[in-house]
Design a binder for these strands. Structure first.
Lengths: 244, 244
DNA sequence: AAAGAATGTGTTTTAAGTACATATTATTAT
DNA sequence: ATAATAATATGTACTTAAAACACATTCTTT
């Protein structure tokens, strides 16, 4: 294997059984939002090593599917949703991360509107959990969750992705509550509105909230053309340096 | 496989041969810097499908090594260097990305000081290339390179990582040239110096450049404690929101 | 009709980014 | 030696964004 990279010597060994004993999986951190809480969809682990603990939804990548298609498949199977927002985050591959064998997993997070899909919650091993209240999880899934949450926090500051978690129409108050749930901190209402306005993401619908127990706020929706399903690998705009 | 995630049904299948026909590799985008040019270390592909093209240095992950250890091993074997800066960037796993079989690869970039190691350049299939002049490469390696360069560009704006590409002592001019090579754009000298000063990364050595064909500049070094070998997954500081 | 609670907007202060000019110090050419 | 050249070194004005903060408005509830 030395000094070959993926050159001939290594490639030849791909046909050798010894190099095929690492399995590849994907794990999905499926974020939702409800009642001012950021949620994550988890399933009860049924490994005896992790009895009582919760784990992310994942599956092995099959030989005939593209890596980035696997999390879509998992999501479709679990939630029935297509066209969800998905972003690849990081790969985890410590030798002993999975008790049953060597599994390298690629972590993705996705943003889904809890209301817009009927979970197979008859399968009562599948539940939404408050992200803020989660402690230990099965496998290294707490680390994966934390890593994905961190990525999400960075993402929402500059990109209009949180709208995948909201209904079509929403008030600025709802939007701010969502940002606060994701970022884990209180935001100043006046500065928040200024900032969001500056981003130019929203359309004023000239409608008002209804059935709220207080003064109704104006309703907005995301500008058409800004809704993203997945993250482009290739950046369209040049880097903002702040160093010029 | 349906509706199982990594639950029992799937885990049981890990012992089935059919799920072990995906190989896992790592590919390293090894960045260097010389003569005001950002360089990348490449090897000639010896696959007949990619005759004459260059490819990244990589290798299959062995069953008994942690995923994140594999790129260190590749670097050690290729350059003899330990303690290089390494960052995992993205995974690539399209079904047909490798002509010889199904290989999911995890891409890393690393930053090495070209001068500080003796490449095994007797192996004359290993060469430093100007990143700016590279066009097609073997496999999907051009996409991997572009993705890693993009990540590097974002990284250097906020984190003191470029110093892994420089000698211990350097002038601000050298530092600016390096930033320009990485970012692919000219920077204003006065604003650049102000910005770098604001970061508080450097120590003034009270020494001057020598053997330069012009007025010598002052020499600096990175403040001790700032040199990073690898990127922490877990952020130490809270998110800067700019939304408060 | 008054109190309470949430919406909606604006101003001041501070920090950072951008654009731009001049003096200084060494080398090179005359 | 002197002048020209080229790079270092530093400062100032302008613009934009972030942060801190206050008041009036509208609807619900008492």
């Amino acid at each position: 294997m030395q000094n070959t990279g993926l050159k001939t010597a290594a490639i030849e060994k791909i046909s050798h059984k010894e190099y095929f004993n690492i399995a590849v999986s994907v794990d999905c951190v499926i974020f939702g939002y409800e009642e001012k809480q950021l949620k994550v969809l988890l399933i009860k682990s049924d490994l005896k090593e992790f009895e009582g603990l919760w784990s992310l939804l994942g599956d092995l990548v099959t030989p005939n599917e593209n890596l980035d298609d696997a999390p879509y498949r998992v999501l479709l199977e679990r939630t029935g949703l297509k066209d969800v927002y998905l972003e690849q985050v990081h790969s985890f591959g410590d030798v002993h991360r999975h008790p049953s064998g060597r599994v390298v997993t690629i972590a993705y997070y996705s943003l889904v509107n809890i209301k817009s899909h009927k979970l197979n919650l008859t399968d009562n091993e599948l539940h939404w959990h408050n992200v803020a209240e989660l402690n230990s999880m099965a496998f290294d899934h707490k680390l994966i969750l934390d890593t994905c949450l961190q990525r999400l926090q960075e993402k929402v500051l500059e990109h209009p992705v949180v709208f995948n978690l909201l209904p079509e129409k929403f008030s600025l108050r709802e939007l701010q509550d969502l940002y606060q749930a994701i970022l884990g901190q209180e935001l100043d209402r006046r500065n928040f509105r200024k900032r969001i306005n500056l981003k130019n993401w929203l359309v004023d619908l000239n409608e008002m909230e209804e059935d709220v127990p207080h003064r109704p706020g104006k309703l907005y929706k995301l500008k058409s053309g800004l809704k993203k399903i997945s993250t482009d690998l290739n950046r369209s705009k040049p880097v903002k340096t702040h160093l010029v």
